[in-house]
Amino acid sequence: MDEMAKPFGLNRRGRVWYYRARVPKDLAGLYKEREKWISLGTTDFAEALTQFHIEAARKRAEYDEMRKRRDSLRSLQASPSAEGFIIDREEAAALARAYLSERLSTDESRQTARHYKGGQMLFAWS
C-alpha cells in the first residue's frame, strides 16, 4: 500500500480499515462527539478505499441535511411573525428533531427531557 494514496480519515486499527468522520465546526453543537469511527468491514486496502468514499459521501449528505434543518429553525425563530406560515408534517418533524438536538446538547436541557423515542416526542418539562 502506498501511504501517499491514502486519503485523510482512512485509518487502520489492527487489520481492519476505518473511516474517521470529523464533525464540522459549524455543526459541533448538534453532535455529542467531535468525530465518529466507522468500520469499513474489510482488511483489503482497495475495498476499504471504495467503502471510504461511500461513507464519506453519506456523512457529507448528513451534514448538509443538518445544516438545512438548523438554518430552517433559525429562520423560523428570526421571523417577526409566523402568521400564514404553513409547513407539512415531515418538515415539522424535521424542525422538531433539529430543535431537540440543539436543546438537548446542553446539560440543563438533558435534565429536563425525560423521554424521546422513535421519532415521537414523549417528554415532559420539569
Rank of each mutant, 00 (worst) to 15 (best):
residue 16 V to W: 02
residue 90 E to F: 03
residue 58 R to T: 06
residue 29 G to I: 02
residue 82 A to Q: 11
residue 121 M to A: 12
residue 76 L to A: 14
residue 21 A to V: 01
residue 63 Y to R: 01
residue 77 Q to L: 15
residue 63 Y to Q: 10
residue 106 T to M: 11
residue 9 G to P: 07
residue 104 L to V: 12
residue 26 D to Y: 04
residue 118 G to H: 12
residue 46 A to Y: 07
residue 111 Q to E: 13
residue 10 L to I: 00
residue 51 Q to F: 01
residue 57 A to W: 04
residue 34 R to S: 04
residue 90 E to L: 05
residue 63 Y to M: 08
residue 124 A to W: 06
residue 105 S to C: 06
residue 25 K to L: 02
residue 122 L to R: 11
residue 83 E to T: 13
residue 39 S to E: 01
residue 44 D to R: 04
residue 40 L to E: 00
residue 108 E to K: 11
residue 41 G to S: 07
residue 76 L to S: 14
residue 84 G to C: 08
residue 35 E to Y: 00
residue 57 A to F: 00
residue 63 Y to N: 04
residue 114 R to Q: 10
residue 84 G to F: 04
residue 51 Q to P: 00
residue 56 A to W: 03
residue 101 S to R: 14
residue 27 L to W: 09
residue 65 E to K: 15
residue 33 E to S: 02
residue 106 T to K: 10
residue 31 Y to V: 01
residue 94 A to P: 07
residue 74 R to S: 13
residue 37 W to I: 02
residue 83 E to P: 03
residue 28 A to H: 02
residue 107 D to Y: 05
residue 122 L to G: 14
residue 97 R to D: 15
residue 34 R to Y: 04
residue 15 R to D: 05
residue 7 P to F: 02
residue 10 L to W: 00
residue 81 S to P: 13
residue 39 S to H: 01
residue 88 D to N: 08
residue 18 Y to D: 02
residue 117 K to M: 07
residue 70 R to Y: 12
residue 53 H to D: 03
residue 4 M to Y: 14
residue 2 D to T: 13
residue 69 R to M: 12
residue 61 A to N: 11
residue 56 A to Q: 09
residue 92 A to N: 08
residue 87 I to K: 05
residue 38 I to G: 01
residue 28 A to K: 12
residue 106 T to Q: 08
residue 87 I to E: 06
residue 33 E to A: 04
residue 28 A to M: 07
residue 74 R to Q: 15
residue 37 W to M: 04
residue 100 L to S: 14
residue 69 R to Y: 12
residue 16 V to I: 11
residue 27 L to A: 05
residue 54 I to W: 02
residue 80 P to L: 10
residue 100 L to V: 14
residue 109 S to G: 12
residue 27 L to I: 06
residue 8 F to H: 01
residue 72 S to K: 15
residue 6 K to E: 08
residue 66 M to P: 03
residue 21 A to H: 00
residue 75 S to V: 14
residue 6 K to G: 05
residue 13 R to I: 09
residue 26 D to S: 05
residue 60 R to Q: 02
residue 64 D to S: 13
residue 26 D to V: 06
residue 61 A to E: 08
residue 42 T to V: 05
residue 95 L to V: 12
residue 48 A to C: 10
residue 53 H to T: 00
residue 5 A to K: 09
residue 98 A to F: 05
residue 8 F to N: 01
residue 42 T to H: 08
residue 115 H to P: 00
residue 82 A to K: 13
residue 68 K to F: 09
residue 105 S to V: 05
residue 35 E to D: 00
residue 112 T to Q: 15
residue 69 R to D: 10
residue 100 L to I: 11
residue 86 I to N: 10
residue 23 V to A: 03
residue 54 I to D: 03
residue 125 W to Q: 13
residue 42 T to A: 05
residue 104 L to W: 08
residue 58 R to I: 05
residue 105 S to L: 04
residue 76 L to I: 15
residue 34 R to D: 01
residue 105 S to N: 10
residue 87 I to H: 03
residue 2 D to N: 15
residue 59 K to A: 08
residue 109 S to R: 09
residue 9 G to I: 00
residue 19 Y to C: 03
residue 99 Y to P: 04
residue 92 A to C: 14
residue 51 Q to A: 09
residue 27 L to G: 05
residue 91 E to P: 10
residue 52 F to L: 03
residue 31 Y to M: 03
residue 118 G to K: 11
residue 35 E to S: 02
residue 112 T to W: 14
residue 80 P to G: 09
residue 109 S to T: 14
residue 91 E to H: 14
residue 1 M to W: 02
residue 46 A to G: 07
residue 101 S to K: 10
residue 107 D to K: 09
residue 126 S to L: 15
residue 103 R to A: 15
residue 32 K to P: 05
residue 29 G to D: 06
